[in-house]
Design a protein around this nucleic acid. Structure first.
Lengths: 339, 339
DNA sequence: CCTGTTATCGCAATCGATTGCAATAGGTGG
DNA sequence: CCACCTATTGCAATCGATTGCGATAACAGG
């Protein structure tokens, strides 16, 4: 059905190998400029499109990148995925997207499936603090981590500067007059959760504040889990006036928990989120949050991956940090005692 | 590096062709049961994974499905995409996901790119009422439409039963006492927008109500565009007490418009959305909306595609309609005159 | 005029799996 | 005991693009 190299060659009256070289920018200089023109014209006329399977078989490169995310339904990720898609597709690469639902077993499955597909590399948003699968995978494939970094192994990564982002949140609350500020951390296994938690402690120390006695963490990145954690936290320390949440859904859960305890946000409790995912300007109350450049993170990770693919191995490992930005809305206000 | 058929064959001491047959469920019956066992064991021992490019080259099937959606950032779509992914991956197929940003030109590009990748079929969420590209594409590929149906050409599709869904919305408002109900329709080119608009007119007639004098439609599926349309509508007809929106973002835009005119929802204006995308329970006010089974739509479309792929052409065109459900939250209330 | 380049292109092998066809062996019925 | 059938396996071509190597010709320098 579709035209092949041979068809183009026959039309021009030359050998398929020459056509191949003429059409490939890297080898076009090996063939007479005049015939390159003719080949291009014939290829266009025949509507020739190279067969990626044939090329891939020969070169053992699929021009395909596995993109592994926890869950596409989590609104943080579509932005990053778009960033990846947009920049990968511009260079002839195609992302293969899979979900893990934060389940390590499921992750192993999907990664095996992608390996079977012979992807050229992986972009992973699922790094855990302790991640054995990651180290063995990194020996076989180029890998770029997004949104999270791993402690098990040093790898190229792209993520927001959480130290800075969390500091923005703390300073905002401090500036409003809050002194009793707590953090609801992400799951213990999560690297981003851990990092933001550390960042919170540091920012608090820098303002001579002490975090809540007992640190609180959710068990999953979900609103429901956050609600429970927030309930514990608010019961533990009734003097609390502000919460820095490890991400937006945790903030949402905290607000819901406060509401169920008849504490209104922001009158009785200020809450700052993290990520600024879509619709955070329309929830009740509109969420003050730290915006991380989701699309940019994806785009940058794709660029990093592409550079990994051309340069053979021996480049220094690059860890990119993108600067987040505080978006002030209506979930934060001065504490009541100060008003 | 990776083991090939030949490696397995050598280990067992037989010909690669026999190994191929032994490993393929469709041809395994041609091979002695005992050697099938041996082959399986050897393959497992060598960690053999078939090379999809080699197989694809020979069979000219990539086991890959192009999934074309307008924009992954629109929260309606991730659910459907998950549905597609979940059921496709279970059968060894891989979705290739692309975005069009509702731009026909961009759509042509991404579809060309997917064709170049030799996808086995397309699942499209971008059908327009008038869609020339669709008819020529449908001659070369199996196609399943989701969420929208096209009038240009009869194709297999999976979507919500909009007639029923819109009726639920109208009946809900009618039951609350509303009589002056308007519809904000989707873009004119959109098939789902048109369909819901028709459904609205019918539901209104069935209740002996007349829609607003001048029908209003957005120019894009966006909150911003909806805000403008709603402003026009509310100025046009101040007696209006309720709006049925063609989707959730339009509902959100309508609520915002009302707010800017000092009309509060639901006290002064009731609004019903459509789709029930994520977070609609947390916006202000929590949105009454018609829930369409997003994951199911995706899953069903994938199943339909798979059936298209096995049965050679001559099956009757199947158009699946999934039943939506009304989710009553807080954006609807009895009209003020009735209270 | 001869040798050494350089530019251009053809040849043929190769990637790994699939599959029509042929070949072999063992078995059956007459 | 023979013709024939079936079960099982091997052979080799094939899918389409890539690429190392060799061939040819033109051309320059000596």
């Amino acid at each position: 059905m579709a035209a092949t190299l041979k068809d183009v060659a026959k039309k021009v009256g030359i050998h398929p190998a020459t056509v191949s070289r003429a059409l490939n920018p890297n080898t076009a200089h090996l063939v007479n400029a005049a015939t390159v023109i003719k080949v291009r014209k014939a290829a266009a006329a025949l509507n020739y499109v190279p067969n990626p399977m044939a090329a891939g078989l020969r070169t053992s490169r699929s021009h395909t990148i596995g993109v592994v995310i926890p869950d596409l339904n989590n609104p943080v990720f579509p932005g990053m995925v778009r960033g990846i898609q947009d920049t990968l597709s511009r260079t002839g690469y195609t992302p293969l997207l899979v979900n893990t639902d934060n389940d390590p077993e499921s992750e192993a499955h999907v990664i095996a499936a992608l390996s079977a597909r012979r992807v050229d590399g992986f972009i992973l948003a699922t790094a855990r603090r302790d991640h054995p699968l990651l180290v063995e995978l990194s020996e076989k494939f180029p890998i770029v981590l997004i949104n999270r970094v791993s402690e098990s192994v040093q790898l190229p990564s792209v993520s927001a500067d959480d130290l800075h982002g969390i500091r923005l949140a703390v300073e905002h609350l401090y500036g409003l007059g809050h002194r009793s500020i707590a953090h609801i951390a992400g799951p213990a296994w999560s690297s981003s959760g851990h990092e933001r938690s550390q960042a919170f402690s540091k920012a608090m120390r820098d303002h001579d504040l002490v975090p809540a006695r007992r640190p609180v963490a959710v068990t999953a990145w979900s609103i429901e889990s956050a609600r429970e954690a927030a309930l514990r936290l608010l019961n533990d320390d009734p003097t609390l006036t502000a919460i820095v949440a490890a991400n937006d859904q945790i903030a949402l859960g905290a607000i819901a928990a406060a509401k169920s305890m008849k504490r209104r946000c922001p009158r009785d409790l200020s809450v700052v989120g993290y990520n600024d995912m879509p619709l955070m300007d329309l929830v009740d109350p509109p969420l003050t949050t730290v915006r991380v450049p989701q699309h940019d993170i994806g785009a940058e990770s794709a660029r990093l991956m592409l550079s990994l693919l051309v340069e053979e191995g021996s480049t220094p490992i690059k860890q990119v940090r993108l600067t987040p930005e505080l978006i002030i809305r209506s979930s934060t206000a001065p504490p009541r005692s100060a008003s």
